[in-house]
Amino acid sequence: MSVTVSTHVLDAVTGTPAAAVVVRLTDSGGSEIGSGRTDADGRIGAITAAPIPPGRYRLSFDTGEWFRGRGRDTFYPEVVIAFDASGGHTHVPLLLSPFAYSTYRGS
């Protein structure tokens, strides 16, 4: 079974989508297999052009660039989320603030 990966980034301070966050998807060996920027709704619907095999992956969010672009300081210049994708669709949301973040298995 193949896997598709999506993400959604929300600014937890303002309660709004985090548009234009650079996101990279890498495999367990660190090779980049997809990338993009979140849209106006803070989403990337499919980070790869085609489905990928099940396995362990990492999403890296360039939060430093995003906060700098808004004139805000942050403690986390990058957020990296490692996850196991077993098949089907995997959605990885990120709730972001300058000095904290959280994530969960989305649907």
Rank of each mutant, 00 (worst) to 15 (best):
M1I: 07
S2I: 08
T7P: 02
H8N: 12
V9C: 13
L10H: 07
L10R: 13
D11G: 11
V13D: 08
P17H: 06
A19L: 08
A20N: 12
V21G: 11
V21A: 08
V22N: 08
V22P: 01
R24K: 15
L25V: 09
S28R: 15
G29Q: 14
S31D: 10
S31A: 14
E32P: 12
E32C: 06
G34T: 01
R37T: 15
R37C: 14
T38E: 05
D39V: 03
A40F: 09
D41H: 14
D41M: 12
D41G: 12
G42T: 10
G42F: 10
I47E: 00
I47V: 11
T48K: 00
T48R: 00
T48S: 06
A50P: 02
I52R: 02
G55E: 03
L59S: 04
L59F: 01
S60A: 15
D62M: 09
T63H: 07
W66S: 07
F67C: 03
R68E: 15
G69R: 11
G69E: 15
R72S: 11
D73N: 05
T74W: 05
Y76M: 12
P77K: 03
E78T: 12
E78S: 15
V79S: 03
V79W: 12
V80C: 10
I81L: 15
A82I: 03
D84P: 09
S86C: 04
H89D: 15
H89N: 11
T90P: 00
P98D: 13
P98F: 01
A100D: 10
A100N: 15
Y101M: 10
S102A: 14
S102G: 07
T103D: 10
G106S: 13
